[in-house]
Simulated scan of single mutants.
Amino acid sequence: MHTRGRRLRFTAVLALTVLTLTGFSTGRHHSHSRHGSSGGGGGCSSSSQDHDTSTSSGGSTSGSTHRSRPTYRSTPTATSSATARPLKDGTAVLKRCASVEDPYSTVEVRNPNGREALFTVKVTYKAGNGSTLADTTSQVSVPANGRATLRMAAAGTGALDRLDHCEVDPRATADR
């Protein structure tokens, strides 16, 4: 009989501890009327809540506060693109047009993004009468908020003797 009393007392203390840790306490429950609830109190606690048991002066529960614990989410990985902002297109400026002596055009590409990006650049080679001799595209990696110089080989080097001028697409397309 003596052991049974200790078990009962241990069970009561354990139950009170569990109730205290989960946000319930003795003497602080409010009764609920049949037509709705009057006041707060009682209720269930979840593992994502933290109940502050402090009260305002006078011992009423109207001054108690409720704070939520931060929600823990998985850390995004490098392969996750859901949170990454889409890249903005860069700008391309022709610095030098190809010629028979040097069959490369030089283009400067600027990156407006806060991270390194790969850009596609297009150069069009025009004859004196305005007709297109060739188009070439090339890609260049540009550092965050920086610029890079790209040398592009002219397509159809046989047409270089008829080349009058080069035109660069001012929009360097960001590789999405």
Rank of each mutant, 00 (worst) to 15 (best):
C166I: 12
A155S: 13
A84T: 14
A127F: 01
Y72G: 05
L163N: 00
P76T: 06
S31E: 09
P103C: 09
G63P: 06
A154C: 07
E167Q: 10
S54R: 07
A84D: 14
T53G: 11
G23W: 08
S31M: 11
A82Y: 02
G43F: 12
L87G: 14
D135P: 00
P76G: 05
T55C: 01
Q139L: 00
V168R: 11
A155Q: 11
L160I: 08
V140W: 03
G42I: 01
T55I: 03
G158D: 15
T26C: 00
R28L: 01
L163V: 04
T132Y: 04
L94H: 06
R162W: 03
L163S: 02
C166R: 04
S45H: 12
D161A: 14
N145V: 00
V121F: 11
L150A: 02
Q49F: 12
L133E: 11
F24I: 02
V93W: 02
E167K: 01
S31R: 08
D164F: 06
T22P: 02
R67Q: 13
T71L: 13
R85A: 15
S57Q: 02
T22L: 09
F24V: 00
E108C: 00
A84G: 07
S68M: 11
G158K: 12
D50Q: 11
D161I: 08
S105Y: 09
H35Q: 13
A78H: 04
T65W: 02
N111M: 05
S37T: 15
R151K: 13
C166M: 06
H35A: 13
D50E: 14
A78K: 02
T26K: 00
T137Y: 03
R67T: 15
S54C: 03
S80Y: 04
Y72P: 05
A82P: 00
G41R: 08
T75W: 05
V121K: 01
V100E: 14
S57W: 05
R115I: 09
H30I: 03
S37G: 14
N145Q: 07
S62V: 11
G128A: 12
A84Y: 09
R162C: 00
G63R: 07
S131Q: 11
L94S: 08
S74L: 06
T136M: 04
S54V: 05
A144S: 06
S131Y: 04
C97D: 07
R147L: 03
L87Y: 14
S68P: 07
S138R: 08
G42A: 10
R85N: 15
S60V: 03
A78E: 11
N111Y: 11
L163Q: 07
T137F: 06
R28W: 03
S105F: 12
A84N: 10
S33D: 15
